[in-house]
Computed example of a mutant assay.
Amino acid sequence: MREVAFIKQNKEKWLSFEKTIANNTVKDPDELASQYIKLINDLSYAQTYYPKSKITIYLNQLAVKTYNKIYKNKTEDTNRIITFWKTEVPLITYKYRKFIYIAFAIFFTFTFIGVISAANNAEFLRTVVGDSYVNQTLENIENGDPVAIYKSGSNWGSFIGITVNNLRVGILSFVLGVFGGVGTIWVLFENCVMLGSFQYFFYEKDVFWESVRGIWIHGAMEIFAIVIEAAAGLILGASILFPGTHSRFTSFKKGAKIGVKILISTFPFTFAAGFLEGFITRYSNVMPNFLSVGIILTTLALISYYYLIYPFKVNKQQTSKILAFKP
């Protein structure tokens, strides 16, 4: 068949199909798949007899659009919440993984500053957390329970209060990213210096191991989540400072949307950390070493896998699907 006759015979069908795809009017995924098969047949014919023709390029582009439409419908049929944590967030964290690495680099730097500051100034911790907090901790050390300050109050009261505070810190860290990321860095600075100086304080008092067993039962996920939330804030700041080819406002909206998704993804870990602090940490002094260490390593491995390893696996799976599609 001559190319002109081929186009004339199928033109109306292609245009109608293109309009359907563009206007998102397909209600039945099976019907869409059926039309897609017909389109692939036409594309195969064009690739065979008119390989360098514009009509072949047009059909290939339409086939790709249709494939994406089918894949989108398939995704929307699944549980949206599961898809969010199982696929969407991992792909986002993979794409913006450099911000996570930067946030961790800042975290370790500021924590080290806290350690060095406390090591060179015996009164430094008091300027960070206040005299009453330090005095109470000294009393707890003398009483044989260095981290007793984390065990006051009721289980549920501690869980709710701690979780709300951690959510506040995370949201604040993200929102302050609107100031070019400077606000996020400041929140991270405050928390990291406090962490570093406090841990050195325990080391200096020869109760470092006891503090690790207590603090990091909940701290593994709590601190890790704060770093991820800081990464979200840095993404927001970068979207304002470096809009690229987009307008600054368009870039900001995109950065805000991405950042919010990352922020929300940390909430389950924040709740889990609050639960551990409210219900488990209080028993750290009577808990066998293998159990406390097991909880710390398990929680750290869980959140590390989700943000540092799993995104690579999801990205590889998605890339394989794309490469397997050859119209």
Rank of each mutant, 00 (worst) to 15 (best):
R248A: 09
I258T: 14
P288T: 12
G214P: 06
F252M: 14
G196Y: 00
G214V: 01
F275W: 14
A256R: 12
L300K: 10
G233F: 02
F279T: 03
L263D: 05
E277P: 07
S284N: 09
V260D: 06
V207H: 08
A232H: 03
T245G: 03
S197Y: 00
E222W: 05
L308P: 01
G233Y: 05
D206E: 14
F249Q: 15
L241Y: 07
F271Y: 02
L291V: 15
T299N: 08
I228P: 05
L308Q: 09
Y307S: 08
L234K: 09
S211I: 04
S251T: 00
Y200E: 07
S251F: 01
S197E: 06
L302E: 02
F275K: 10
Y306C: 04
F279C: 07
V212L: 06
E277G: 15
S304P: 06
P288I: 10
P243Y: 02
I217R: 03
A272P: 01
F202E: 08
T245A: 14
E204N: 15
K253E: 10
V227R: 11
A301Q: 10
I303H: 01
W209H: 14
L195W: 11
K254Y: 12
G274H: 00
F208V: 11
G244S: 00
E210G: 15
S239I: 02
G214C: 09
T266H: 06
A238I: 09
G294K: 07
G233K: 08
S211Y: 10
Y283S: 15
G255W: 05
F279Y: 13
F249T: 14
I228C: 00
I295M: 03
I296D: 01
F208S: 13
A301P: 08
L297R: 11
I296Q: 05
I226G: 14
I296G: 00
G196L: 00
I240R: 02
F242D: 07
Y283A: 14
A238M: 10
F279V: 04
K254T: 15
A220D: 00
A225G: 08
D206Y: 12
I235L: 03
R213G: 13
K257N: 14
Y306M: 01
S292N: 06
R213Q: 11
I240S: 02
T266I: 11
S251V: 02
T250R: 14
I264P: 11
K205Q: 12
E277H: 12
M287P: 07
V260H: 05
I226R: 13
G214S: 04
F271G: 03
